[in-house]
């Protein structure tokens, strides 16, 4: 049997409002993999690749999902927002700033996923209760902070947004 090169796919994704061409990709590649390895967008992190840790959270068509569980080639018609698409022109978003101020970042590995999840929460809920915050972040795992400072950061964003 002659060896043939594995068949590959070409398609286009819209990430943070911009079109990106994906070439020669394997059919089963996750959106997380394509973002990081093909599109030069390594902000989304991968740890478990089975939906358990939330470090790969992105927003697809208005829903916060695990990018490791999105088949990249099936997202051709979707609007995808990653951590790189939050905040204006290299500036930190208010959520990122609040994480720093509150000490909600230690090793930082979980942070992009949390920040995307918090932006998503606050775009739907302007004044979430503590339980709503905990629930909204229950799919994101942090090994370092113990969560207290992350919750504090979210509450701080709510306060700052209200007073601005």
């Amino acid at each position: 049997m002659t060896k043939s090169s594995p068949p590959s796919l070409d398609y286009r994704l819209t990430v943070n409002g911009r079109p990106h061409e994906v070439q020669d990709s394997w059919i089963g590649e996750s959106l997380l993999y394509v973002l990081r390895e093909r599109l030069g967008l390594p902000g989304s992190k991968g740890a478990c690749e089975q939906g358990e840790c939330g470090s790969c959270t992105v927003v697809v068509d208005g829903r916060a999902v695990c990018s490791c569980l999105v088949l990249a080639a099936s997202a051709v018609d979707s609007e995808i927002t990653t951590i790189e698409g939050l905040g204006a022109d290299q500036a930190l978003s208010d959520v990122q700033q609040a994480f720093i101020d509150a000490g909600g970042v230690q090793c930082g590995f979980c942070t992009p996923g949390f920040v995307v999840a918090v932006h998503h929460l606050l775009s739907n809920h302007h004044d979430p209760s503590d339980n709503e915050i905990r629930e909204a972040l229950s799919g994101n795992i942090c090994r370092c902070t113990g969560y207290g400072r992350i919750l504090e950061a979210v509450r701080e964003v709510v306060v700052r947004r209200r007073s601005s």
Partner: peptide, 20 residues
């Protein structure tokens, strides 16, 4: 994809073609 992609990521499944 929350069941299927786990199988693909863990190399338990290699689909030849997919209908979404």
């Amino acid at each position: 994809g929350t069941d299927l992609m786990v199988e693909i990521n863990l190399h338990d499944r290699r689909p030849r073609s997919v209908v979404s």
